[in-house]
Simulated scan of single mutants.
Amino acid sequence: MNDTIEILRENLGRALWETCTMVGIATLVGVVFGTALAILLFLTQHRLFTPNRIVNEAVGFVVNAIRSMPFLILLVVLIPLIQLIIGDPYTPTGGAIALSIAAIPFFARVAESAFQEVDDGLLEAAISTGAPVRQIIVGAVFPQALPGLIRGIVLTIVSLLGYSAMVGTIGAGGIGDLAIQYGYNRYETGVLVAVVLLLVAVVQLIQWVGDRIALKATH
């Protein structure tokens, strides 16, 4: 028990910071680039804009190809690329890059679904006014899709927290690394229990906050 407390006291703060950094960077990158991909997929698929089957299917294929790979396999595949970019893939920065690449297609599909739920009647009314596509996206699509986007961001963060634990299997830091190095390799069951309880509490908090924000954003 004393060993568990000592391990947590010395390492938990650093591990939490590394996890928050990785997940925060990946969420930001995933939301920005995933939203851009979602807009492209939405515009090239929707009958009211500029349908382009070739572009839509090509982008959709790449998105689905990355999404179809289990994250642990994707992580291993990305190690040479990450090593080329930053030199050492076995760091929180390397973990953030891997998580970002996983987050982009994940959020792209979530955001695309949110955009597709926007009422066609509203879009037709906006188009009939002669508004440009950019103005329609910003003034009509985003406000109506906002609750779904917020829930999608929450879902992305929760998923990335789970993925970040897998990053620990290659020694890239975070609470997953703490659980593997001390809880599993050194048979400190108390560390594993503490990490699991902490993850459950964090996920519950994120979900609760996200649901409240999405509820307020619902029109």
Rank of each mutant, 00 (worst) to 15 (best):
V29L: 02
C20L: 15
I175Y: 01
A98F: 10
I153V: 15
V133H: 07
D88E: 14
L178H: 10
K216T: 11
T50D: 10
V110N: 06
L146F: 12
I175L: 15
P143D: 08
L72D: 03
V77A: 15
D177I: 00
G95H: 02
V167P: 02
I101Y: 05
A214V: 11
P70Q: 10
I137R: 11
V195E: 01
A58D: 03
G173C: 04
G148E: 13
Q204M: 13
Y184V: 04
G176S: 08
T21H: 13
I97K: 05
I157A: 09
G24H: 01
E18I: 06
L160M: 08
A126V: 12
L72M: 14
A102W: 03
A140Y: 14
F33C: 03
P80M: 09
P89E: 11
S159M: 13
E18R: 03
T129R: 14
G13H: 07
I213G: 05
E18M: 09
I157S: 01
A140F: 14
V202H: 02
T156W: 11
G174K: 02
E117R: 13
G210T: 08
G171C: 06
L72N: 06
N56I: 08
G94M: 01
E117W: 03
L78H: 00
H46S: 13
A145R: 06
T129L: 14
I7H: 07
G13E: 07
I25Y: 04
N64G: 12
L197R: 04
R47N: 03
G60C: 00
Q83Y: 11
V203K: 05
A26L: 02
I39Y: 04
I180L: 13
I180V: 14
I39Q: 03
A15C: 09
A111T: 09
V29Y: 01
L28M: 12
L75T: 01
A98V: 06
I39E: 08
H46F: 10
Y187D: 05
A194K: 11
Q135A: 14
I180W: 01
L149M: 07
T35K: 08
S128R: 09
A217H: 02
A214L: 09
N64T: 00
A172H: 04
F42W: 00
A36N: 08
Q207E: 12
D120T: 15
L84E: 10
Y90V: 00
E10C: 09
A103M: 05
F142Q: 08
L40G: 14
L74M: 15
S164N: 15
V76R: 01
S113C: 02
